[in-house]
Each structure stands twice: as C-alpha cells, then as structure tokens.
C-alpha cells in the first residue's frame, strides 16, 4: 500500500543576513527513511515535535515532492499523480479543515461527493453510516465555522471517507479532543480498520491512541526512523524502567533498597529506577520504612523518554 525508499526532504529557508542580503540554507526534515505498509495495517507514526512526521505525510499525499528517494502509494507516485491518488486515499490534518467554512456540514459532504464522483445512492447509505458512527446527526446542518473542534474533526473524518478510500492518513486526529470525542474517534477507526479493511497511518502525541489502536508503530526522530516494530515490543521498552522520585527530609547517601537502584541524586531528591518485573509498592514501603520521606512520586516513562532511549540505540528495530 505504501512504499517509501530512502526518502529525503530538505527545505530551502531564506534568512535575512544583513541589510539586503539574503542567504539560503537547507534544512533537513526527513533523512533517508525507508518503510513499507501493507494493506490492512494500522500503523502509528510517532516522534517528538519537529521530527518530520507531517513532512513525511505531505510526501505520501503528494503535497510535497521528495528531495530524493522513491515514494509509492497505492501504486502511484504521489507528487506526479496527485489527483489520481486523491481519489484513492483519505487524508485528515487535525490542525486544518478541508471542509468549506461557510457551508453546512451536509453541503460540504455533498460537494465532496460530487468532486469524487460518488453515486448518489452509495453516498446516502455511506452518509447514514458515517452519521451514526461518528454521531454527526446533531450538527449536520450547521455551518462548518460554527462547529466545535471535536465536531469539526468528526466532520473532517467523514469528508475524508465519503469516497471509501483504501488508505486513510491522519495527522494528529485527536489533538484537542475531549475524552468522549476521542473515544468515539478511536472506536470508529478501529471499526474502519477491522471491518472495512481500510489501511490506516496516523501520527499522534497521545500514547492512548497508540495503545488502543496501532498494531505497529514507527518512531521518527530528527528525520530518521528510530524504531519500527510491533506494539508489544514498544510496550516492553516503555515499561523498561519506571522511575520513583523520592524527596527525603535531608540530603543522604544513595538509598539502598531491594528491587530498585538509584540512578541520580540531587540534594535531598533521589531518582530510583524500578525494572518492569519489580514491585513498586514494595519499594515505596521499604524506602519509607528506613528513611524520613517528605514526598514520593512514581513516573511512568513517557513517549519522549522512550524516543530518547531509542535514539541512543537502546532498542533495535525488529524489521
């Protein structure tokens, strides 16, 4: 479905360097990335801010032309066959709407139907289905500019699916959504992937999205692919070490306790790493029994920690 082979993208940035002089510099955004996504997969594409996720997606959808390397999506070259590709894929940018600002959502969707040449009867059935699953009923006749973020997001999802694409690409589809909207969107995506067999690629900063949705994750950092593998492996890496932060009443030598080891100290504060097999409660009890403790907190390693570790070469890719 997607083939990316040694793809690079760098941007030309013009800067003022003096009164009238302008200098051009090349900024690398994506650096020799290769991966393939098969039909029916549900892939999460993760990475810190500025890693190159959106840039990759723009190359997959034909908005940007790669500086070098080869991209194929649905057997087409995105930048050269952009409009043909548009008929086969659906794209949603969470930050930006593709709907017509002044039109009611229903009219926007009808217009999309015309642009994609979907039969009226097919459209009616599809619209009914999307309306039910995405709970659009309450605001189908409201102009898009009056929709809330969550409503608009669901409208955008519907618009991207009017033509029943074989691939759905989502750039931060849950950004800014509340818990309920997130749940609706996630349930919908799962159903789309399992029942319709739609291939889905999504970027997100929300670990919950990844855990509930993606069977495979790819991590990109500084434009390079740092990890590509299954979710269980990612989870194992995620659970690698939990960190217990202990604030003692006064500075003390490193705490010695079974099931944890001190990785850092800073005055009265100490960081203890607990391996995945360890029992955090036992460690907390042991520390509290032997030391005068002011405060104690347990930090689950976040995705940023994971990425930092990945980039340091902690976990090898299993593909």
């Amino acid at each position: 479905m997607i083939e990316v082979d040694e793809v690079c993208k760098s941007f030309t940035v013009r800067r003022r360097s003096g009164r009238l002089r302008r200098s051009r510099t090349l900024v690398g955004a994506v650096d020799r990335i290769s991966f393939t996504v098969a039909a029916g997969e549900f892939v999460g594409y993760l990475g810190p801010n500025g890693a190159g996720k959106s840039t990759t997606i723009k190359m997959l959808t034909g908005i940007l032309t790669p500086t070098s390397g080869r991209v194929r999506v649905s057997g087409l070259d995105p930048s050269r066959q952009r409009t043909a590709l548009a008929r086969r894929i659906g794209v949603v940018f969470g930050q930006r709407t593709t709907l017509w600002w002044d039109l009611p959502l229903r009219d926007s969707l009808t217009l999309v139907r015309h642009l994609y040449r979907v039969e009226r009867s097919t459209h009616q059935a599809r619209l009914a289905e999307l309306t039910e699953l995405l709970e659009l009923g309450a605001f189908l006749d409201t102009p898009v500019r009056q929709l809330s973020l969550g409503q608009r997001m669901r409208g955008d999802l519907a618009a991207a699916l009017v033509h029943d694409p074989e691939l759905l690409v989502l750039d931060e589809p849950t950004i800014g959504l509340d818990v309920i909207s997130k749940a609706t969107v996630r349930a919908f995506l799962t159903r789309l992937n399992t029942e319709r067999g739609t291939t889905i690629l999504l970027t997100t900063h929300d670990l919950g999205d990844v855990e509930r949705l993606c069977r495979r994750v790819m991590v990109i950092d500084h434009g390079r692919l740092a990890y590509d593998g299954s979710l269980p492996r990612l989870r194992a890496a995620l659970d690698a070490d939990r960190i217990l932060i202990v604030d003692l009443a006064r500075a003390a030598p490193p705490i010695e306790v079974d099931g944890a080891r001190v990785v850092r100290t800073d005055g009265p504060r100490q960081w203890l790493a607990i391996p995945p097999s360890g029992n955090a409660a036992a460690v907390v009890a042991a520390v509290a029994a032997r030391h005068e403790v002011e405060d104690i907190s347990l930090r689950e390693p976040g995705i940023e920690d994971l990425i930092t570790r990945l980039y340091g070469g902690g976990v090898p890719a299993d593909r």
């Binding site: 723009k58 959808t61 034909g62 908005i63 952009r82 409009t83 043909a84 548009a86 008929r87 794209v91 940018f93 930006r96 709407t97 593709t98 642009l115 994609y116």
Partner: peptide
Amino acid sequence: GTLDTLLLRPV
C-alpha cells in the same frame, strides 16, 4: 497553509 488542503482533493 490552506493550499495543502486544496492539494488533497482530486481537482
């Protein structure tokens, strides 16, 4: 950046 969204349509 709205040109991006125009480029996503089959027109």
